[in-house]
Design a protein around this nucleic acid. Structure first.
Lengths: 107, 107
DNA sequence: CATATTGTTCGATGATCGTCGTACAATTGA
DNA sequence: TCAATTGTACGACGATCATCGAACAATATG
């Protein structure tokens, strides 16, 4: 049960899109792409509680978007960029590029 | 209230990704891209009821993925390809290309 | 006018989701 | 050994979701 990672062939588009459709998770993925160095979950600045963070990382992992490996008391997270690019060419890049677009702020 | 279409600037990435994360809606979008001719909702073959269809078309419309315009008793649906491409370059194409990938079928 | 045809509206239902706090587990370090 | 750090597990909560059927509305067509 612990830290299941789906094999590349099992990555499903709806699950990946769903994983990326949450603002907090999108932020995680953006940070990971800007700084690909594997980082502990705690180093991501999200305005949610610790347990909610755990939840979001699980959703991303089970959709195949990230990998997590234990190191001491930490869990290092990295993007499964290669798998994503193989399975869904151009998708991650398009999402990341789209996420860079600033949101229109009301006057 | 009737048939609201968000202006291009208001298209939000999470909403679009969420709209595309459902298999039925993904199928609608794929059909629309293969055959860009505006079609009535009824011409899409989904294994859901009429009212559920209405629901999915509303989600897609409110996310800015499709347009719907009335013609007689029908409602013609088309992809907002230009708006999507401007706002989220490459996203729709990547999603569509990824959706073409056949799902692995268990032996 | 009567009847299809096409789609919406309106609950309702069961499932999933995002969020939280508390308690717990595991490792590190003094 | 004791305390700090890092993350998980477990309910629980309200919100949203995908789905349905039945009733309704609007337009065509006979």
């Amino acid at each position: 049960m612990s830290t299941y990672h789906p094999p590349r062939e099992d990555l499903a588009l709806p699950a990946v899109l769903h994983a990326l459709s949450d603002p907090q998770r999108l932020r995680i993925v953006r940070e990971l792409s800007r700084d690909p160095e594997p980082r502990p979950c705690g180093s991501f600045l999200l305005d949610v509680s610790k347990s909610t963070k755990t939840h979001h990382f699980r959703v991303l992992r089970e959709a195949g978007v990230i990998t997590q490996r234990v190191l001491g008391t930490s869990k290092l997270t990295s993007l499964r960029r290669e798998d994503l690019d193989q399975r869904f060419p151009g998708l991650l890049d398009a999402v990341l590029a789209s996420a860079e677009t600033p949101v229109a702020v009301p006057a």
